[in-house]
Amino acid sequence: MSRLTIERVVSGYADMEVLHGIDLCVPEGEIVTIIGPNGAGKSTLMKTIFGLLKPTAGRILFDEEDITGLSPDRVVRRGLAYVPQVENVFPSLTIQENLEMGAFILKGHLRDRLQHIYELFPVLGDRQKARAGKMSGGERQMVAMGRALMLDPRLLMLDEPSAALAPNLTATIFERIAAINEAGVTILIVEQNAKESLKLSDRGCVFAGGLKCFEDSGPALLANEEIGRLYLGG
């Protein structure tokens, strides 16, 4: 079954169309990675799925239900979670408060959920009262992912999860992403430097100029010499 289906979506900003009719299918339980150069429309697609930008044409289906143009808090209620590329934590809030905000729409106690996140990212459990703004880049990424996982989403969207991370941290983050996927969460990743990500991915898509120009399984895309030369830095 398709968890997320994008049908001929046209979107962008007031004075500039960025996506010129994108089609994409994210099957349930898989990891899909979108690669492509800066300005290809990867982040625009994420923002459009999440209701931060309104598409001017096309449809977005989540578990076969139309979510086109829903406001972000409605999208969250449907079971999608989104980790933006930058500024993805609340710097003046503590780690625990950041995670609590992830479950804002829930009433009642969060202890079990918090415990679950601290098991997934033990570093965070040790520093619950620390302000997120004082954390390193890798720790912030974990806070951001932890926050997105607080509601047990059915689809997790990650915008460049390894951007600006040290190589050893990148490995840790992708290992966690694989574990999250094992637990049953479908994952959509956008990456500029996507080798690590494609290794994990069931499918990979190449975006360029606001259109999808190529699609294959993750490993096959990684092995494709032309793609490697054009988009993966040789």
Binding site: L52, P72, V76, F90, S92, L93, M101, G102, F104, R147
Partner: peptide, 24 residues
């Protein structure tokens, strides 16, 4: 309070507050 924390979160970053599901 939850609303107090949400206010601080919104003050930090409104767009992130919205995608987090906070009713801004």
């Amino acid at each position: 309070t939850k609303m107090g924390k949400a206010m601080r979160a919104t003050s930090d970053n409104t767009a992130l507050a919205r995608v987090t599901g906070i009713n801004t």
